[in-house]
Design a protein around this nucleic acid. Structure first.
Lengths: 257, 257
DNA sequence: GGTGATTTGTGCGTATGTATT
DNA sequence: TAATACATACGCACAAATCAC
């Protein structure tokens, strides 16, 4: 029996073992706090400390009035290198729709746009001075009615005006095509991938539970001469993952058929 | 003043604001629990609930006997698409060393190797049956003496034997070159990027604090006909990020000089 | 539809241990 | 050594959400 130095850690270790060994499978209800109090002879606070530890590890979710449950992690795959292919030149929104359908989900999106001063993280990448006004186009993506991720794209004002992106509605042919049609053809991009715990704001808009980090994929796209946009996708890690396919993968793709 | 429905959330909101606005900058000590008890007129348990929330968001770190401190997030950049270039064909370990030096750190590594039965996640990607024995080569990477990340690589047994990878020491020319020399030349790879909270095991080997997720980058490399390895890099998100450079980025690179 | 029981959430108090200053 | 500060552990009460009847 795993027993750490302190009572609540020892209890957490034992419950964690019962979960990781599969004795308590995903979706299953854990013993109630009262039952754990009896089982381990500890006070309620101590039991709750143990459960909080497991919750912060993303192993369980507790629901008021219902109990604690073993959490399931199953993810939608975002193919980061596929949207750019010539044979599938859809907008990134369409790429999301396609992948969601393939995975058996019913996707939907909601759109909003605003003009705001660029913070340094965006300004640096767009090569404009800080606080220059830029266009932010936001798409919140849903799967079967549940929030899946949030996509924020920032465009330099001049480019947005020329390509007609400074409008408060979605663009059917996709923003990338709209820009290309005006001569801003993207030829490369830099993806920065990080992870962090959700801010209270994320927790609301993305419906992220305690113990689940968010993955942040931030893409800076370039034409042959200048950056065109920064697109940041923020996605809860319990239901999303990113895939990059690099080089020659003919052999791999043959196995996927 | 941000005030949520409950006392401890309201306190957490106010302290969070003081941090995000820069009033309490990174590295600074927060007020002590006693001081917060006085300031907010709440019990110690309530104050600790508020601090625990901030700790789980990765905003602060508490140290017994010292106090709570605003956490800093500064990261080493892993260039995922650079190691594969012909002009820099170093091993992935060397890529780490190079990037660490560029960032002004003193890198070091420790190596271990073992032979173990493949779990399904590895077996599937190496296209061998589950529980087939495979070679695991582990490199723990340090920056200035502190753990930075852990790299685990699994190789099919036949390939490991031919390329001489089933030895308990590092390989100077790099495992990728050693395989290429025996005819297993990698031509492509699939990178799967996910994030999760560290397991107790991770917390020990990677020295990850509460509230900091780990980024997991898992690369399956292929020759023209078969997979050669699965390489999984597990890195704390507070000191690492990944960058993918895709397509033509001449214009971007010109700005980097 | 409603009522009581169950279960987790919030908040208070106290005491003692352990690490740092 | 003493004081300070966070960690662990106990107790209690009531609120809020859910569930079973």
């Amino acid at each position: 029996m795993a027993r750490a130095g302190t009572l609540y850690r020892g209890i957490a270790d034992q419950v964690r073992n019962r979960i990781t060994t599969g004795e308590i499978p995903p979706g299953t209800k854990l013993p109630t706090e009262s039952q754990l109090i009896d089982q381990y002879g500890a006070s309620r606070n101590t039991i709750r400390l143990a459960l909080a530890e497991l919750e912060n590890e993303g192993l369980i979710a507790t629901e008021q009035g219902r109990g604690s449950f073993v959490r399931e992690w199953s993810s939608l795959t975002h193919h980061a290198t596929r949207a750019e292919r010539v044979d599938r030149p859809a907008s990134s929104t369409d790429a999301f729709v396609a992948e969601a359908r393939e995975a058996g989900f019913e996707p939907s999106t909601s759109f909003s746009m605003r003009i705001e001063p660029a913070v340094s993280e965006i300004a640096d990448r767009l090569q404009v001075p800080v606080d220059t006004f830029v266009v932010l186009r936001r798409v919140v993506r849903y799967l079967d009615g549940q929030v899946n991720s949030r996509q924020d794209s920032w465009y330099p004002m001049d480019l947005a005006e020329q390509a007609g992106l400074n409008v408060p509605h979605d663009i059917k042919e996709g923003t990338i095509r709209a820009m290309a049609a005006k001569g801003f053809k993207e030829v490369g991009n830099i993806d920065e991938v990080t992870a962090r715990m959700p801010s209270p704001d994320d927790q609301e808009t993305l419906d992220v539970a305690t113990g689940v980090p968010v993955i942040v994929q931030q893409r800076t796209a370039w034409t042959a001469t200048r950056p065109t946009r920064v697109t940041r996708v923020t996605m809860p890690a319990d239901r999303n993952r990113i895939i990059y396919e690099l080089g020659n993968l003919d052999a791999y793709e043959a196995t996927q058929q």
